[in-house]
């Protein structure tokens, strides 16, 4: 069962930038690309815990601000020679509103 909740409008997130949402599991970073696609991933680099939301966004990728690991926003996988991945969360864009399925993290907490 999905539970889509409105977290804000597209313009709340800067192009080639990110905002965070706080969850019981920690922060999730919501990204907006130059071509207005949106993605959500854990705001924590698997390398040293760097806040990915603070990185530079290029294409559908982000570079971690601490040690320059690059992650695909689509798959959550580290790019290039680095190995690792972050969890991705499905988002919906509905009439300029960004929706996230709270079950994806609520379920995890309940379990």
């Amino acid at each position: 069962m999905n539970d889509w909740v409105d977290i804000g409008c597209l313009e709340d997130v800067p192009r080639r930038g990110a905002r965070c949402i706080k969850t019981p599991l920690g922060k999730i970073a919501v990204f907006r690309t130059a071509d207005d696609r949106v993605f959500a991933i854990d705001d924590q680099c698997p390398h040293k815990g760097g806040p990915l939301s603070q990185g530079i966004v290029h294409g559908a990728q982000v570079t971690c601000p601490l040690h320059n690991w690059v992650f695909s926003l689509e798959s959550g996988n580290a790019q290039g020679a680095d190995e690792g991945a972050v969890r991705t969360y499905p988002l919906r864009l509905h009439q300029n509103r960004i929706l996230i399925d709270v079950q994806t993290f609520a379920a995890a907490t309940a379990a």
Binding site: I7, D12, R19, I21, T23, P24, V30, V102, A106, A110
Partner: peptide, 17 residues
């Protein structure tokens, strides 16, 4: 201002359920 504030806060989610 967007840089310094969270977009949404679901931290109370667990307590609410």
């Amino acid at each position: 201002a967007h840089e310094f504030a969270a977009m949404a806060d679901f931290q109370m989610l667990q307590a609410a359920e």
